[in-house]
Amino acid sequence: MKDDRTKRPVRPQWPAWEMTLAALIVAAGVWSTTLSPYYLSLDQIFGSTRFFIIPGLLALGLAMVVSLGEIDISLASTVAVGTVTLSKLSMFGVPIGFAAAAVVAIGALLGTLNGVLAARFGLPSLAVTLGAMGAYRGLAFIVGSEVGYTDFNDSYRWLGATRLFDDIVPVSLLAFAAVAVAVWLLMHRTVFGRYCFSIGLNRDASWFAGVNVVKIKICAYALASALAGLAAVVWVGQYGSARGDNADGSILFVVTAVVLGGMDINGGRGTIGGVVLALMLLGTLRNGMGLANIGGPTQTVVLGVLLVGGVLRPAVAAALARLRRPDNADV
């Protein structure tokens, strides 16, 4: 018996939600081709990736925090702190390599602060990062004032603005892909990642099993905010400007991507692959809505509906399952 079971390979479960997302991406792409004859060109498709790279980096970071059952809504403000810091460094002629490292480090520092407050002192992460959202946004304005800075030289803009291979593939897309693979490996192939999900499922059990819960949580917050620092470097390249209100309001897109990607907002469940697919879906939709001349406010409404729909999905699925098996209603 026992041998039988070990010999027989476990049948891999179809990742149903990821498959659905992939199908939806194809559907959204087909819908987009009907909107504009210019949609189906490599240039356009690769160009449209700019819609999700910056929020995508934030979403990958947020996914780590969410896997722990925590939340960090200060990430967009951290991006603004990053961009205005880059503007100051650029003003003093600091080489980009050093400047980028400094901004990522500053991001990690801000994230550590969030992590220490939430994990070490046990404050509710929502309240802490809501406060941090305001405080970091204020900090960005204090550092950068409300006048934008646009005199970035080409080396600062390289990561966000350059396209390789006949001017088609954006460097930032490659960077995003690299980060996505790294985060996937970290979350699904390392001890750190398993600890993250186990803490999200049952914090106390993980603690009794000897997991350093506080350290893991602080690390996740720091990593997420470091990615926000990287997103700031991409931002400067993409938009060529830095101001205190950069990325204001983009947290909605980020949270939507994470939730739609199948991460359980209460922690412990979800995949990085799902988050990446959700990002591609949202990017395709946003690109398509842009082609269809659908205005920004309507896009925001669609985003809000998708967010609520994404969270309601498990509840609706459970309700449908109950309807299908009325005899098991109480289980």
């Binding site: 407050l117 404050l123 309240a127 802490v128 809501l130 406060g131 941090a132 959202m133 305001g134 405080a135 970091y136 946004r137 204020g138 900090l139 304005f141 204090i142």
Partner: peptide, 9 residues
Amino acid sequence: MFIQGVAIV
């Protein structure tokens, strides 16, 4: 904004 955020925390 900064003071408001710090005050929450």
